[in-house]
Simulated assay, not measured.
Amino acid sequence: MNTYLLILIIFLMCVCCISIFKNIYFSNQIDEINRSLEQIRDGNFNMRLRLYSSNKGLQNLGVNLNSIIDEFQRIVEKKEYLEESRKKMISNISHDLRTPLTSVLGYLEALHKDSTLDKEERKYFLDIVYIKAQRLYSLLEQYFQLSKIEAEDVPIKLEKINLTNIVKDALVEFYQEFVKENIEPIIEIQEKDLFVWGDSKAIDRILSNLLLNALRYGKEQKTIGLMMKEKNSMVWVEIWNGGAGIPEKDIPYIFDRLYTAEPSRNEKLRGSGLGLAIVKKLIERLNGKVLVKSIPNEKTTFSFGLPLYKQLM
């Protein structure tokens, strides 16, 4: 046999062998991918593809598939969280509406059926009914406002706003509340007016909700403060109070709709959890940022920042 022909045959046999081994290798890799995807399909979302290959195409395939699996896992976890939040929201709504309504019905029944009540007792009962009904109306109004904000049905007009003046006006509105609770707030506002790009009604609502929150949880310690500062092309307003504070585990959820930390779910301090949700939604509509820090039994600070007006000119 011709030597050159023999070399050619050997070469072709080597090529065929390499091709066969390569196909077997790729087939094994594909089988590995299928096995991993089957486990993920069956609910093992911690499974990831591990492809040991020098082939760039296989490497890219593995990276992209793992990226898709990561995103899918985030979606599943978010869905589970939202479902849990929905159940908790329904429970909290039922609790928050039932409590004042039960009280109102109880006192109305006494007024209707108890003929032994004298004039002062009837007036006392009516005053309680009025207070509870106001609480119920306020709660329903917050639900309504939050739903409108989430649906972007509340008009936001971005314009040049003197934030310093709005903050001062908000403090004046709360003056009687501070006097009533014997609180002298610590105010740190620089003399220079600070202007932001915002909406006056939205900002006023944000300040009102945060001040109400600080007053609710800070009045027992008689410590409430407010500070304004300019930092990193934004104007920041910090509102802080003393008190029990917020547990670290609750911080990530504090702005969620109807979320209230369990220790606060009592008649003296319990809020609806709607005020802070409204704050977050409005600040997002204003292209701002909101933060919360809490040192239990020492200090809790809610901060929101809005873009300096000159930065958007």
Rank of each mutant, 00 (worst) to 15 (best):
I24L: 15
R257M: 15
I251Y: 04
K289E: 05
F11L: 15
Q29C: 09
Y143K: 01
F178D: 00
R41Q: 14
A261L: 03
N182G: 01
Y52Q: 13
K229N: 13
Y143R: 02
A110P: 05
M227I: 07
K249G: 10
L82Y: 15
L215G: 07
K123Q: 15
M228E: 01
L12I: 12
I203Y: 05
I295L: 09
S138E: 14
G288I: 02
E284W: 04
G305L: 05
R86N: 12
E230Q: 12
K113G: 01
S233T: 07
S264Q: 08
L207D: 10
Y4L: 15
I69E: 11
E32F: 01
L117G: 13
P185V: 00
K249N: 13
D199I: 08
D153N: 09
L226F: 04
P296H: 02
Y217H: 15
S36R: 07
A151E: 13
R270C: 04
I30H: 12
Q142H: 10
N64A: 13
V154Y: 14
L258Y: 15
E32L: 11
L312F: 00
G245K: 01
N2D: 15
N2A: 14
N34L: 13
Q221N: 13
I128M: 09
E188Y: 09
E120V: 08
G242H: 06
L101T: 12
L146Q: 04
G62F: 00
V290F: 00
K229Q: 12
E120L: 12
K180S: 13
Y143L: 13
D114R: 03
L82R: 12
L312C: 03
I295Y: 09
Y175L: 00
K79A: 10
I283V: 14
L140M: 13
N46H: 04
S208G: 08
A170H: 00
V154R: 01
L97Y: 07
E71D: 12
Y4S: 15
R285M: 05
Q176V: 03
P100M: 07
N162P: 05
D256V: 03
L58H: 02
I18V: 15
L308I: 00
N92F: 08
S138Y: 11
S27I: 04
F125D: 10
I156V: 14
C17E: 12
S67W: 03
G62E: 06
S138T: 11
N266L: 03
K88V: 02
L269F: 12
M228K: 02
Y175H: 09
T164N: 01
L140N: 06
F26K: 14
I251A: 06
Y143A: 01
I131Q: 11
Q311A: 09
K79G: 10
D42T: 09
I128S: 11
F178V: 00
L291C: 03
I183G: 01
K299I: 05
G225Q: 03
L37H: 00
V129E: 11
I246Y: 06
S208Y: 02
N266E: 03
S54E: 11
